[in-house]
Simulated scan of single mutants.
Amino acid sequence: MTVVYIDSVFALNALADYLLVYSAAQLAGARLRRLRFFLAALLGGAYAAAVFLPGMGWLTVPPVKIAAGVLMALAAYGGEPRFLRLTLLLFLVSCGFAGCVLALGLAAGRGMPMENGIFYTNVDTRVLLISAAAAYLVLAVVFRASARRSGAGGFLVPVTVAFCGTRAALTALCDTGNTLRDPVTGRPVLVASAEKLKSLWPPELGPLLTPHALRAPAQTMERLANAGADIARFRLLPYSAVGVESGLLLAVRLDWASVNGKRQERLLLALSPTSVGDGCDALWGELEGYKPCR
């Protein structure tokens, strides 16, 4: 007869679940909310322990297991704009993790102590960590290769922009598809949604830099000149996008910007009249040397 220690079941599965929700968030470029991931891990550990309690065998039926996974995803990623993608990725990472655990166990000449996908005795912690790392690396290679083919970088970085003594905080997506460059310095141009920059402008400029006004950037440039703005700080940038006709964006020379802690003096900021994407306020066309938000 197999003896099951509930505390070991809870601890092992909570550790595994934390690694899973963390890895899925890393791969998706989502914000790494460690406290929420810890809560999701506790829920996963509690579910695993409950399976072995008398009369709780119904928890192992597939619909209930899926519901438990979705509950974990809600605890970890609830409120994220790409919640469905993160949930599907969590299930994919879980499958990869389980496969790596099984493969390592067979390679070691012994099976893994699992029942209905749940660890129930003392699993070698090294096997657990190596399995999580292997699953993460395999999926990371797949995702990065996909990103190279699609031209998308795929991770988020914190950004602070400063203009005339005022600052605004943004979240930018590192996107190699954004090839917009400053014609003066050759540096990447930060492209941000105008809706997220309302607090950045002085009172006299705010009414002139609304999303509606920026749909006609040439006319907005004219109005800025008529209003006595420092027009030397503004310029019109030509752009083109896949499936979209070419056009112009109004851009402004910032005092400075900090992109994931790297200060950029007098960076050019292009103002988009529309949202630039789900889960981000801006696009940054440089990947090398940057890491995802922590």
Rank of each mutant, 00 (worst) to 15 (best):
S94M: 07
L170Q: 00
L12C: 14
S272R: 02
D255V: 01
L88W: 13
N13H: 08
A48T: 13
N178F: 08
V142M: 12
V259I: 15
L19T: 08
V61M: 14
S199G: 11
V64T: 00
Y77V: 04
G105C: 01
T210H: 03
A50D: 09
E245T: 10
L89R: 12
A172M: 05
D230H: 07
G279K: 12
A73W: 08
D255C: 01
G79D: 02
G96N: 09
A270D: 01
T274Y: 07
G78Q: 06
C100D: 08
T171D: 12
A145K: 10
S146A: 11
G151L: 06
N226S: 12
L248F: 03
D175C: 00
F119K: 09
F38A: 15
R167W: 08
V189K: 04
C100R: 07
D230A: 09
L42R: 13
W256N: 05
S272F: 01
R148D: 10
P81S: 08
F155T: 06
W256H: 06
R149N: 13
S146K: 14
F234E: 08
P217V: 05
L283I: 05
V21E: 10
L90N: 12
D17P: 06
A67P: 11
G151K: 03
A227D: 03
F83S: 02
A16G: 14
A73E: 12
G45L: 03
G243N: 11
L237G: 05
L269D: 00
R126V: 15
